[in-house]
Design a binder for these strands. Structure first.
Lengths: 347, 347
DNA sequence: CTGAAAGCGCTTACAG
DNA sequence: CTGAAAGCGCTTACAG
């Protein structure tokens, strides 16, 4: 059987409590003794039993806050599914998870929720951050206080944080270029439609697309980049206007899966003239359009897995009281085609 | 906090031991008392704490056998990675996992390993089964004895088993058709190359491809179906011969990712004439050919996740002493393009 | 700075 | 058929 702290305690001639304190750097132990204990643990190749750890930690009732924006955002809704699944599992290990919602881009509301979480004794925050200086400042403060914050889905540039869990925007952008290249035969007039470019995630993706398309697929010309409103009607009008004014555009990379309005306009235009469409994400609207054959490929970033992973990671931090090595935790980008839908439903 | 057996015991006026016996149908408890306990548990919406369960079960040292064939099969090697990861995690919960390897299609060897696992007191078997009557008979016996067997990757038709963990061959076949349709523009002369058709998995996939292609993409004609040897040189010669004899074939669905020989012949021919290639699985050879642009898409079935899931499922059976509802546990089929490679490496 | 003891929730010999 | 008790491995008040 595996090595236990009891064995280490016997070998070191101390109690298990002391071993625990030494191995977990809890202080209140003679440095020399700690040294000896650590050495023995290393020699024996000791690995703590995570299950026992969880069970034991139950008494302390650690609380985790998940702060996110949710105004009709279908993407975030799916993130929440994963959050809830993880919350359920973590419950057995003694964690309490509270989801705190605020409106999109409402900086004051997000700041308030952060302060609330801290003052109410939450042990860590999982955050879909608004890219804003005030929030950045607050997050940096927390970092200095050693308060764990995990950025989910997006980050604030220049901010200090424990981890990022989300999509690798660089590669998902490249994948979308390659797919578009395939279905257009390497030559097309392209419009890229994307959400709020204030968000790091959207800017990353756009940058990646522009750069990679130019370099690898020069036959595909980016004729227009449209920053869509987060609002359905507004984005519908924006997209409609562009496509009406530019009849030469014959392919679209729709990067704002969460916003239905613009997509509606795109699908309408596709009825009138041949347009190749590649989207991101997998919403109800996209699913339907794929079934009907209007969207050929969509690229998803597993939002529910992102929510799940972020919470699991936070629980690890809190249990081990230290951050893992990696700061960036990427979630797999997936390519879906009409036929993938049933496959994903059969899981 | 959540409901515990202690609370139930108090309400029912019995000891926790009795509650445990009643709730887990271990017998040795008055039926009426058991009834009452179950009723209380239901009313309180009791859910056992899986973590505590694991920890407690540690003393019993349950053993799980994983029996599979491994003669140079790159697919199975990846399955093993997942098996090992799960084995590592299960170790903390008191399970011991032993991997028993036998040669491809060696029925006697597989039977022997099954008997060995049973006689040596293993609690369950995860099996990549050979599609054979004698093995089927043995597996059915085990089923009658309530000995848990999980089929991994493939099944034996007509056999009785607890669960299947693997790919949904029907949908992965359909996905490959749709991809081929996209990259050929809907018209092609196709050769399908596939491994041993004695295996249920391969037969399923082929059936799905033939049926779906005919129905949805009539412009793509299946000109040849080649059953490849499992052996590199032999399969190389087979594929070479077909492609030399049939210069009209301009697209290939290569379904035997695990066998490199045939693929080598395919890639050689692709140097000489334009051939569109879609493969299954993601081996070193396929990775390289994708980088070089010779293979456009490959379809993977997450072999390591299959190994992982099968073992996790078995541990659940053994802990809960009952099988879950679902018999078929499908693992996600993924579409990969050249640009997906880096993304998957960044995980 | 250190140890003995209780506890997390569940399971199981053992004694009755 | 039933209960009291010990145990899985780790953590933490508490007392010293």
């Amino acid at each position: 059987m595996a090595v236990t702290i009891k064995q280490i305690a016997e070998l070191a001639g101390v109690s298990t409590g002391t071993v625990d304190r030494a191995l977990n750097n809890r202080g209140r132990v003679n440095p020399q003794v700690a040294e000896r204990i650590k050495k023995i643990a290393k020699e024996l190749n000791y690995h703590p039993n995570a299950i026992a750890k969880s069970l034991s930690i139950k008494r302390h009732k650690l609380k985790i806050a998940v702060i996110l924006n949710v105004s009709k955002n279908r993407f975030v809704e799916t993130v929440l599914t994963g959050v809830e699944l993880a919350a359920h599992e973590l419950h057995a290990a003694g964690f309490t998870v509270e989801v705190m919602k605020c409106k999109d881009f409402d900086v004051d509301a997000q700041l308030e929720l952060i302060d609330k979480a801290v003052s109410e004794g939450f042990a860590g925050i999982v955050l879909i951050p608004i890219n804003n200086e005030r929030i950045k400042a607050r997050v940096n403060e927390l970092y200095e206080e050693d308060f764990p914050v995990i950025f989910l889905t997006s980050i604030i540039e220049g901010a200090k944080f424990w981890s990022y869990v989300g999509c690798n925007y660089k590669y998902s952008g490249q994948i979308s270029c390659a797919i578009l290249n395939q279905i257009t035969g390497g030559s097309a007039r392209l419009a890229v439609m994307i959400s709020n470019l204030q968000m790091w995630s959207n800017r990353q993706r756009l940058l990646s697309i522009e750069k990679y398309m130019n370099k690898e697929f020069p036959g595909i010309k980016i004729e227009a980049v449209l920053e869509l409103s987060n609002e359905d009607i507004e984005s519908y009008l924006q997209a409609k206007k562009l496509l009406d004014e530019r009849p030469d555009i014959n392919s679209i990379l729709y990067c704002s899966g969460a916003v239905d309005g613009g997509l509606k306009a795109v699908l309408e235009v596709a009825q009138q003239r041949p347009v190749k469409i590649v989207t991101f994400d997998f919403t109800e609207t996209i699913r339907k359009a794929m079934y009907d054959g209007h969207i050929i490929f969509t690229i998803t970033q597993n939002p529910n897995e992102q929510g799940y992973k972020a919470l699991k990671l936070m629980s690890q931090y809190l249990m081990d009281r230290q951050r893992p090595d990696a700061q960036f935790h990427y979630i797999n980008t997936e390519i879906m085609i009409r036929e993938s839908i049933k496959d994903s439903e059969s899981l």
